[in-house]
Amino acid sequence: MNIFRLAGDMTHLMSVLVLLLKIHTIKSCAGKSYPCSLCFILLESSSGISLKTQELYALVFATRYLDIFTDFISVYNTIMKLIFLGSSFSIVWYIRRHKIVRRSYDKDQDTFRHFFLVLPCLLLALIINEKFTFKEVLWTFSLYLEAVAILPQLILLQRTRNIDNLTGQYVFLLGAYRALYILNWIYRYFTEPHYVHWITWISGLVQTLLYADFFYYYFSSLKNNVKLKLPA
């Protein structure tokens, strides 16, 4: 474990916590009297969260952590896997099933057909992988899928008029975690002999590059102290 990977995991954990906080805010809002301005904004405008991206991430974790009960790495590793699995599936459940949270989900805007991402990633994993075994192919599939899983969310943000802070933070943290992982891979390449994982590195690089324009607008909105807005 190195500082870059730990920072990356913590950033990833933060992104999940921000999303759970946002869902909690929406839930708690419904109980209050209506005139509360925050509630009004939350319930009237869409939450800006893409269910499609959340479903893709649940699939990413399900296919990446198949070895959670067979290969024990460390307590930290197992706990983090359980957190990511539990949170991603519960977020999907909240947006799909929870009587209040589902109201803030705008399915008319979140129209990205994520099936078009799943199939090519699966085919690519069958062709390009380190070992042609069930677990290895699914693990490789999870890397390719994670690289593109943010696309429905980024497209939804372009369509969302006013991106609220928690959603912007969520996407930023999600992009930042993989950028930190790239530093981790560079560090491990120079410190551990034979540490070469091209598939992981290229997928992670593509994933981070997909956030490039978001990062640009995110930092610009911070610098100019204006609302985050992505050009359509």
């Binding site: 990833h12 290969d71 790495i73 590793n77 990511f84």
Partner: peptide
């Protein structure tokens, strides 16, 4: 020798 590279990253 290809060590059975255990996936130690999340």
């Amino acid at each position: 020798s290809a060590t059975t590279d255990v996936k130690d990253e999340l």
